[in-house]
């Protein structure tokens, strides 16, 4: 613990030697990570919206008229026994008519048309797992269509397909943004840490000669990189939270990133900070070992 404190104070002292450079690095990192956080925030909310739609994914099974009471009950039981099915609701032609009349604002449809033109219908909702899998709805529709008494099976194939395609795009866009942001973080920190290292080259030469190990020399730089990355990701998340707070007035229901995402975001950025610092000091450190070799910059 005291050892960590020693290295932290070394890192902090090093930071104090180039405040402007440190701020430049921190600003760049925060900007990059903020953009990533915004993409993640958008992705998260789009996925959330899609989930809600998927929950409504289901089938409408229209039946032929005049089925005996018992047959309807049998069919409902059968459909309920399918693994993909969460709920089966029977709506008689009268109930369906009343629903439509309510939606139309109290117009008396049956009076206008003389007869009820509607068919009785089963509304089937799928379990969330089944809803998430591609092709399930279509397969189920084909299976149900062959039963006696079934007139027609309808499902929103068009919007289901495009929803799935859209979600794939969102997924790739988020992944792409993540990769680009990682590369940017890597390059910025690589440069910052290398400058900090080269600025202290003489000191490091002295440390080597008095018997400092590589890890002793490296440690403050790894901590410096971690400090930059962690601070930048905290700031980025705060700015993203602020942005959501501003936007939620216009878009109620806009959600912030779940806790698990923010933890991964912070940990990932920190790890990346350590890795890029490690990569950055490794080659100049090695070339210092042989005194006649020039330090590569």
């Amino acid at each position: 613990m005291t050892r960590l404190r020693f290295f932290l104070s070394e890192a902090w002292e090093m930071q104090g030697r180039d405040v402007a450079g440190g701020l430049a690095s921190l600003t760049a990192l925060t900007a990059v990570l903020f953009l990533l956080a915004v993409v993640l925030l958008a992705g998260h909310n789009i996925r959330g919206a899609a989930r809600a739609l998927e929950g409504r994914k289901g089938l409408e099974v229209f039946l032929v008229g005049d089925l005996p009471e018992g047959r309807v009950g049998e069919m409902a039981e059968l459909f309920r026994s399918f693994g993909e099915v969460a709920e089966v609701r029977f709506v008689s032609e009268e109930q369906e008519l009343r629903r439509i009349e309510r939606e139309l604002g109290g117009v008396d449809v049956s009076e206008a048309m003389g007869t009820n033109p509607l068919s009785p219908v089963f509304r089937i909702t799928l379990t969330p797992e089944a809803a998430g899998r591609a092709g399930v709805v279509q397969g189920l529709a084909e299976e149900i269509a062959v039963y006696e008494g079934v007139d027609e099976v309808l499902y929103g194939e068009a919007w289901i397909g495009s929803l799935e395609r859209g979600l794939r795009h969102v997924y790739w866009a988020t992944a792409g943004a993540g990769i680009l942001a990682s590369i940017a973080v890597l390059l910025v920190l690589w440069n910052t840490i290398k400058l900090a290292f080269l600025g202290r080259r003489e000191t490091i030469r002295i440390l080597k000669i008095v018997g400092a190990t590589g890890s002793f020399i490296r440690m403050p730089y790894l901590l410096l990189g971690a400090m930059h990355a962690t601070t930048a990701s905290i700031l980025a998340l705060l700015f993203a939270a602020l942005l959501r707070w501003v936007l939620v007035a216009m878009m109620p229901g806009l959600r912030f990133l779940p806790l698990s995402w923010t933890v991964v975001f912070l940990a990932g950025a920190t790890l990346l900070g350590i890795l890029s610092s490690y990569a950055s000091v490794e080659s100049p450190l090695r070339s210092l070992e042989r005194s006649h070799e020039a330090v590569t910059s």
Binding site: E202, I206, K208, V210, G211, T213
Partner: peptide
């Protein structure tokens, strides 16, 4: 090398 160098004291013209 670090353990070798901890057992050798080194002094330079320019003090370092």
């Amino acid at each position: 090398l670090p353990s070798l160098r901890r057992r050798i004291g080194m002094v330079y013209q320019d003090f370092r």
